[in-house]
């Protein structure tokens, strides 16, 4: 029986890796991947608490987050493809047309 805190610490580590990646990387595709990793870390927390507290609510939440993640990936990548058509770049520093 593994303590729930270990799962929570693992999820915190994964979330930090994702957050660090979002700040560190300039390639928009990799940033989207890092966002997915952060969502996964949150899902792991939900499932760990669901197991700890003996309730199914956490797993239902994870189900909803997966739906949102799928939609987010599809819309995000469509926006990225459209941006690439206009700027011929995936570097996030090149997307500054809202800067004015």
């Amino acid at each position: 029986m593994i303590p729930t805190a270990w799962y929570l610490l693992l999820a915190a580590i994964l979330f930090s890796i994702g957050a660090g990646g979002v700040m560190l990387r300039r390639n928009t595709l990799v940033i989207l991947m890092c966002v997915e990793l952060m969502m996964n870390a949150v899902n792991l927390t939900f499932v760990a608490f669901s197991h700890e507290l003996g309730s199914m609510t956490g797993q239902v939440f994870v189900f909803m987050i997966m739906t949102v993640a799928a939609v987010e990936a599809a819309v995000g990548l469509a926006i990225l493809v459209e941006l690439y058509r206009q700027t011929q770049s995936v570097n996030i520093d090149d997307f500054d047309s809202l800067k004015g």
Binding site: L10, L14, I17, G18, G21, M33, C34, L37
Partner: peptide
């Protein structure tokens, strides 16, 4: 492996 995969991804 999950942590290693995440770090390698970044």
């Amino acid at each position: 492996l999950a942590v290693v995969g995440g770090l390698a991804m970044v």
